[in-house]
Nucleic acid binder design. Structure first.
Lengths: 208, 208
DNA sequence: GTCTATAAAATGATAGAC
DNA sequence: GTCTATCATTTTATAGAC
């Protein structure tokens, strides 16, 4: 009996391992090409299995992308929870933007906020994804309120504007352009985007 | 002889009119769906002609999109040239962002700055487009230098960062999100994006 | 130049053997 | 569950009549 239980557990582990490998490939392709240009042939090739095998794990291309996106939101939530509690609310928000832009530059950030992708509607109709997004928004909304209360973020700006502006940094083409230009390191690009996102471009950086 | 000349001129005019109608449809579809999701069938349907007729005017889908994008840059250059000379350099730059975001909200702004679109490489290899982009960048670079010189834009920020940041507003998903939310008018959305782009989110708007 | 019809290729998804 | 082979559909592009 114990053998049987261990065997099942081992098989389940193997399954999860394989599905994680598939989602890794999907995440990478979503980051580089987006949903519409990603093909199932490419996914299969990057994982190193036959295309038909993909469909034994995920019912469709949409299901594949949805699972990958849900995992991404889980990771964002993990980043939020692991943010040092000693930081100010503003610095926590900046830390999230740093993570998002860094992931973007490393080709591990799917370009989610594009309302133009055909996957967007599928995602909004996928409860597991929306539930996770809701939890993420809740945590960030708290930080935003706190930052507005202590005067480090403009109190006259609607909270949703701040939220969307932060989200949008994860797909900001400015990072790609600066990387293409080659004049800046990835770290410099990240700091530039954080600075322009929060401080704008009209005043010079004050000593931190 | 005069009849013949007029006839040719008239035919040429008709041709241009038809091709402008085609480019209008392409521009609209590029703005709503992007290059990869736009199909030649849709273009033909929106213009109201047969798909094969499209290929009598433009050699390929890429040629169609390139011509549309070249026309867009021409319009941007026109906006730049029509900007009132009495405005400060900073206000001229803000005026361009206003035009870009307004066009975006009106579905007349193709999402050009995405390095993820498959049309990007075609465009960079299309000299007429690149030449126009170069002229646009030149004019904006001058305004940026002037704004930095008079202290209205941060002098410590590399000019190309400012340039790309301004360009990127034309495809900013924040505008789409705010429109989807329904809490703001188009004009309010435009002003929000202009403000966060230039002033950031860390200080309240000062009286203008 | 416009049309209908069709070729040629890409791609999401499935059948069926093992 | 993995594979090979194949289907069904979409989509870019062209042929050929008028």
């Amino acid at each position: 009996m114990q053998d049987s239980v261990q065997k099942i557990s081992f098989k389940a582990q193997q399954l999860k391992f394989r599905e994680d490998a598939i989602l890794d490939a999907v995440n990478h392709l979503l980051a580089r090409k987006g949903f519409d240009l990603m093909t199932m042939d490419e996914v299969a090739a990057e994982v190193g299995i036959a295309k038909a095998s993909l469909y034994k794990h995920f019912a469709s291309k949409e299901a594949l992308a949805s699972a990958s996106m849900a995992r991404l939101i889980d990771r964002a939530i993990a980043v939020v929870h692991e943010m040092p509690g000693t930081l100010s609310p503003l610095d926590k928000l900046k830390g999230l933007v740093r993570w998002a832009v860094t992931s973007h530059l490393a080709n591990t950030m799917p370009l989610l906020p594009s309302t133009r992708s055909s996957i967007q509607q599928t995602l909004t109709n996928y409860p597991p994804y929306m539930e996770k997004v809701g939890r993420l928004i809740e945590a960030l909304g708290l930080w935003i309120e706190q930052a507005q209360a202590n005067g480090s973020l403009s109190a006259s700006l609607p909270g949703e504007v701040i939220l969307y502006t932060i989200f949008a940094r994860s797909c900001d083409p400015v990072a790609d352009f600066l990387k293409l230009g080659g004049a800046f390191s990835d770290h410099e690009i990240v700091e530039i985007l954080v600075k322009t996102c929060f401080d704008g471009m009209t005043r010079d950086k004050s000593a931190s």
